[in-house]
């Protein structure tokens, strides 16, 4: 049994180590998306190194591919590869641990990096699962800045045309992109209403709350006749005041001083969450797939 809330803060520390060692990475989005990935990989999805070639596994597409450091930390924790290998090789010459997901690595299904690709690809996967009569599901994580890509809306249409209730999309709604506030760059304020208008089932939750996310993924599984969009309202740079809600931390390698403060903040938060009494049966303590 695992405490997923505390785990999210331990994995954030691994992300910081990856970024410090590789001198690169999208730290702000890595921190906002962490609970989403933890809830997916440690609660919602049927995926592990043992079943990674099983045609009945759940499928995952990281459409906001630039936040690959968070995905590396989660996949390493799942046992797909050692975290030491990621920290040692990330962004190095000819390493497979590059700045976007690539499917040369175990656990990564599709190459991504250019935004707006993941949703249509996930729709194809969900269609295939249904054609083959499988009960497995497909998940895709997008950024909120990414929603300005037209291809997202092509996919939003076809997912409801085909009533893909085995498809669950998540928007990491951290409200910041590289140039500043998403609302100033290209407004997304009515994202829930927009997807609902396309016919999606929409849930809006605290995206840095593992319990809320696990409950939303469970609700998506119970939804029939339409795909589900989970708007995960998050904080960019979540975990330390040094980087929270700061657009210029979209990609930023911390100074040694910042590094010290961030790691201290993350460790303190992890320790506090580890000590916290969990609600029996609560998702944060449940860990394993139902």
């Amino acid at each position: 049994m695992q405490n997923l809330k505390a785990l999210s803060y331990r994995l954030r520390q691994n992300v910081v180590e990856i970024i410090m060692a590789g001198r690169a990475g999208h730290i702000g989005g890595d921190m906002s998306v962490m609970e989403i990935l933890v809830a997916l990989y440690f609660h919602a999805m049927n995926i592990s190194p043992e079943n990674r070639d099983d045609p009945n596994r759940d499928m995952f597409v990281m459409s906001k591919g630039h936040c690959v450091e968070a995905l590396y930390a989660v996949l390493a924790e799942k046992g797909f590869f050692p975290i030491e290998k990621v920290i040692g090789e990330y962004s190095r010459f000819a390493s497979p641990f590059i700045g976007h997901p690539n499917n040369k690595l175990p656990g990564i299904e599709m190459n991504s990096g250019s935004l707006g690709h993941g949703l249509p690809v996930a729709i194809g996967m969900a269609l295939a699962q249904r054609m083959d009569g499988r009960s497995s599901r497909t998940y895709v994580v997008m950024g909120d800045g990414e929603l300005a890509e037209g291809s997202v809306w092509e996919g939003a249409m076809s997912a409801t045309q085909y009533r893909l209730d085995n498809l669950c999309a998540v928007v990491d709604r951290n409200r910041l992109q590289i140039s500043g506030s998403t609302e100033e760059v290209m407004h997304q304020d009515s994202v829930e209403a927009r997807f609902a208008a396309f016919g999606w089932g929409v849930l809006s939750v605290d995206g840095n709350d593992v319990d809320a996310l696990c409950a939303a993924f469970d609700a998506a599984k119970r939804t029939s006749g339409k795909p589900t969009l989970i708007v995960a309202n998050t904080t960019k740079g979540k975990g330390s005041a040094v980087m929270e809600n700061k657009a210029d931390w979209h990609h930023h390698v911390p100074s040694m001083e910042e590094y010290g403060q961030i790691m201290a903040d993350l460790k303190a938060r992890e320790a506090a969450l580890s000590r916290q009494a969990e609600v029996p049966g609560g998702c944060g303590e449940r860990g394993a797939r139902e």
Binding site: P55, P120, V121, I123, G124, M125, A128, S151, S158
Partner: peptide, 19 residues
């Protein structure tokens, strides 16, 4: 997929990934 060529190719790739 309707008149949506990006969707056409993205969905195609997802289907192909599944065999």
């Amino acid at each position: 997929v309707g008149i949506a060529e990006q969707d056409l190719v993205g969905i195609s790739a997802g289907l192909a990934k599944m065999g």
